[in-house]
Design a protein around this nucleic acid. Structure first.
Length: 438
DNA sequence: CCAGACGTTGTT
DNA sequence: GTCTGG
DNA sequence: CCAGACGTTGTT
DNA sequence: GTCTGG
C-alpha cells in the first residue's frame, strides 16, 4: 500500500502551502533536488518535513571513524539544547530518497533494495525492538504528497485499476513517516532516506485495499506532536497518532498509464471514464447532454474526453469546491493540484530529470519516451523525444563493465565480509528475451 | 560467543 | 546499532 | 507500487 | 516465479 504517489508540485510551492497552515519552514531544498512528478515511485527523491535536529547517526555517528567522540559530544549538546526549548525548534523541508536505509548499513547494495522499506507498519512500531527502533524516537517526519495511488484488483487479481486518493480540500496530504541518514563505509556522502507509515484502511477505502498510509491533518496538534523532537521516547501518545484517516477523501479511478513508472502526466490525478465513477469527466458531459442510448453516447463522450485531454483542459468540476486560488502564475510549470488548466505541451511529457537514483549506477539518458497512449494515432508528434535515434549510438549505454558473476549472491550490506571485486553491481545492457519461463 | 536478521505487500 | 537463535 | 527482465561470449 | 529498476 502506498507504493506510488503524486508530487507534481514544486518544493517552493509546498513550502508556501505549509506555512499557510501554520507549519513553519526555515529551510527548503532546491526545486531541482526533488522529483516533481505525478508518478512518484520508490527510489525517487521526495519532500520530507521535519524538525531541524542533528543527523546523529548521520554519518553513522557511532562509526569508529574519524572524530567520533568529538562529533558525538557536539551533537549531544546541541540536541539537548534544543530539547529543552521546543519552541525554538526549527522545522524544514528536505529532499530525501524514498526507501529507508538504516544508518548502520555498511555499503551500497542497500537495505532499500533488498528489503522493502518504503513502508513501515504501525504495529511494527508498537513492538519494542526491530529496525525502526532508533528512528521512531528521533527521526519522525511528514512526507508531503498531493495524494496517493492504489491499484484495485479485479477478476482475481488479473486486472489492476489504478485509483487516486486525495484530500477533498485540495490541500497537501501529510503522511506520517520516518527518516534516517547513512554514510557508507569509506564515504563521506550522506544519504537521506525515508519511509511512509501504514495502518489499516478506513471504511471508505477498504473496497480498494486493507492498508493505507497514515494521514495527519495539516497544521494539527497531531502533526506537532509527531514532529516534536522533545518526545524522544516512544509513547502511547505517539502510537495513538497512527490511525486510519477519519475524514472523507476523494477516491476515483485514473489512467492506467500511471502504472508505468516512466510515464508522467497531470492527467494521472484526473478522474478517468468509468460508468460507476461519479467524479469522472465522462459523466460530467453525459449530464450536460443527458440523453440517448448507451453505445452511441459512450462514443461521443469518449471522443469529447479525448478532446478534452488533447486540448489540455481537464477539470474535475462539481459542487463549488473552494479552490484556494493558487499560483496561477506561469504556465511554464505544472500547476498546483488538480490543475484547472493544463499546458497542452505538458501533457504526456516526461520531465527530463534523468534518473533519480543517486547510486553510482545512475544515468540512463536514452529511452525516455513520452507517455504512451492507448491510441497512438492521437500523437501529434509535437514532442519528439530527443535521442530517439538509437541508430547512431554504438551502444545502448556506456555500460559499466558487466560483472562477471551473474550469480544471485549478494554481499551483505550490513556486515564486512571479504569479497573481492567492486561492490554493488548492476548488470547493464540487457536485451529483450521473450518468455523463457512460464 | 558469533552470525544473521532487522521489512512490506500480496498471493497462495 | 540491537536483538535473537544457535 | 508496477513493469519488465530473466543470457553469454567476445569485441571494441 | 522472482528480482530489479524506476
Amino acid at each position: 500500500m502506498c507504493g506510488r504517489y503524486a508530487l507534481g508540485i514544486r518544493a517552493s510551492f509546498v513550502r508556501h502551502q505549509l506555512q499557510e497552515h501554520d507549519m513553519p519552514v526555515e529551510d527548503a531544498p532546491d526545486d531541482a533536488d526533488v522529483r516533481e512528478t505525478y508518478n512518484f515511485a520508490p527510489g525517487n527523491h521526495g519532500l520530507v518535513y521535519r524538525a531541524d535536529v542533528p543527523d546523529y547517526g548521520a554519518g553513522g555517528g557511532h562509526h569508529e571513524r574519524e572524530q567520533d567522540s568529538e562529533d558525538a559530544d557536539q551533537e549531544k549538546h546541541s540536541a539537548s539544547t534544543q530539547l529543552e526549548d521546543p519552541k525554538e525548534t526549527r522545522y524544514k523541508l528536505q529532499s530525501m530518497k524514498w526507501g529507508l536505509i538504516p544508518f548502520w548499513t555498511k555499503r551500497n547494495p542497500d537495505y532499500g533494495t533488498v528489503m522493502r522499506t518504503i513502508n513501515a507498519r504501525d504495529d511494527s512500531l508498537a513492538s519494542k525492538g526491530g529496525m525502526w527502533n532508533t528512528m521512531k524516537q528521533k527521526k519522525r517526519c511528514i512526507v508531503i504528497a498531493q495524494g496517493f495511488y492504489e491499484w484495485l484488483k479485479k477478476s482475481g487479481g488479473k486486472e489492476k485499476i489504478p485509483h487516486y486518493v486525495k484530500r477533498k480540500d485540495e490541500q497537501l496530504m501529510c503522511f506520517a513517516g520516518l527518516w534516517d541518514c547513512v554514510q557508507y563505509e569509506g564515504s563521506n556522502e550522506k544519504h537521506y532516506t525515508y519511509t511512509i507509515i501504514t495502518t489499516d484502511s478506513n471504511k471508505q477505502l477498504t473496497f480498494l485495499h486493507d492498508r493505507m498510509p497514515v494521514i495527519l491533518e495539516n497544521g494539527s496538534d497531531r502533526i506537532r506532536t509527531w514532529l516534536d523532537p522533545s518526545k524522544s521516547e516512544w509513547s502511547k501518545d505517539l502510537q495513538s497518532l497512527l490511525k486510519p484517516f477519519e475524514g472523507e477523501l476523494d477516491c476515483y479511478p485514473v489512467s492506467r498509464d500511471v502504472g508505468k513508472v516512466g510515464n508522467n502526466s497531470p492527467t494521472f490525478i484526473v478522474p478517468v471514464a468509468s460508468t460507476d465513477n461519479k467524479n469522472n469527466i465522462a459523466n460530467f458531459f453525459s449530464n450536460v447532454k443527458k440523453s440517448t442510448q448507451g453505445e452511441e453516447e459512450k462514443k461521443q463522450v469518449n471522443a469529447q474526453e479525448e478532446e478534452v485531454k488533447d486540448k489540455g483542459f481537464a477539470v474535475e468540476h462539481e459542487k463549488g469546491e473552494a479552490r484556494t486560488t493558487v499560483n496561477h502564475t506561469s504556465t511554464e510549470d505544472n500547476a498546483p493540484l488538480p490543475a484547472p488548466v493544463i499546458e497542452p505541451s505538458k501533457l504526456g511529457l516526461n520531465r527530463d530529470l534523468g534518473s533519480d537514483n543517486d547510486d553510482e549506477s545512475t544515468a540512463e539518458p536514452l529511452k525516455r519516451g513520452g507517455l504512451k497512449r492507448e491510441h497512438p494515432s492521437e500523437d501529434h508528434g509535437e514532442l519528439a523525444p530527443a535521442g530517439k535515434s538509437l541508430k547512431t549510438e554504438p551502444y545502448a549505454l556506456p555500460t559499466k563493465s558487466p560483472e562477471k558473476t551473474p550469480n544471485k549472491k549478494r554481499r551483505s550490506a550490513t556486515k564486512n565480509g571479504t569479497v573481492k571485486g567492486s561492490p554493488a553491481k548492476r548488470t547493464g545492457g540487457s536485451q529483450k528475451i521473450t518468455n523463457f519461463y512460464k
